[in-house]
């Protein structure tokens, strides 16, 4: 058959695309369980990481069940939604809904008698989604720990938000200011505060300003949604407004 004829070109293209597509579809379905397992275990590992329990990804399931005593899904008014499985809530989908319809997952950890509230975060970085988890001590003001992750930030720049030295900066930071107004924690460029833990700010990463701003926005936007729930807790100093 003439290799330059239209018919040959057409048939070649159809066969090539069919072969490639089925090969990829086959590979994707074969690898999918292993990938989903990685994602699930990593989620448990990240949640545990915020309260200072470091486990390897593969062995996260057992300590997760041990330390995470409650998994609650809340509505926008702070009421529990009993019909929703908090661990299965996909923030990516939730964020596309109206605030009133979203579910807000909350994990309660009990580590050697101390109670922590772990809030999942999700927002926008420079290129794509960023997300993370932030654990608050039971005054719901002091941060116990945080972890961050991203889909497509530049390795070495915005991608550095996953690093230990960056997340350590959030330890013991406060999310309320001194008069009790909710602020969050801002990732500040040219930060001069040193080890000051009461200024609601941490030092940013050079070359990653927009990713840092994304972290700031994500923390304040997400945590604010949980204020109605925390207001019902007596030991929380939430401003009157």
């Amino acid at each position: 058959m003439d290799r330059n004829s239209n018919a040959y070109t057409f048939i070649f293209a159809v066969i090539l695309v069919a072969v490639v597509a089925s090969a990829l579809a086959f590979a994707a379905t074969q690898l999918q369980p292993a990938q989903a397992e990685n994602v699930k275990n990593e989620k448990m590992q990240n949640i545990l990481g915020t309260v200072g329990i470091e486990v390897s990804r593969d062995s996260a399931a057992v300590p997760f069940d041990k330390y995470i005593v409650e998994r609650i899904a809340l509505d926008s008014k702070g009421q529990e939604k009993t019909e929703v499985n908090a661990f299965e809530v996909d923030l990516k989908k939730e964020l596309k809904k109206d605030v009133e319809e979203q579910s807000f997952p909350l994990y309660v950890a009990n580590v050697e008698g101390a109670k922590y509230y772990i809030v999942p975060l999700r927002g926008k970085g420079l290129w794509d989604a960023i997300w993370g988890y932030i654990a608050l001590k039971d005054d719901v003001n002091t941060i116990k720990g945080a972890v961050f992750d991203h889909k497509g930030e530049t390795p070495g720049l915005g991608g550095e938000i996953t690093q230990v030295w960056f997340k350590k900066r959030f330890d013991d930071e406060k999310v309320f200011d001194e008069s009790g107004n909710f602020i969050g924690v801002s990732v500040a460029k040219g930060y001069q505060g040193g080890d000051n833990k009461d200024d609601n700010a941490v030092d940013a990463i050079s070359g990653a300003t927009i990713t840092g701003d994304g972290v700031t926005d994500m923390i304040s936007e997400r945590l604010e949604r949980y204020l109605p729930y925390f207001k019902n807790k007596t030991n929380v100093k939430v401003a009157a407004n």
């Binding site: 290799r3 330059n4 040959y8 070109t9 070649f12 293209a13 090539l16």
Partner: peptide, 10 residues
């Protein structure tokens, strides 16, 4: 086997 007209796409 590749038709030269669509070789880049292939």
């Amino acid at each position: 086997l590749i038709p030269s007209r669509i070789r880049i796409i292939v």
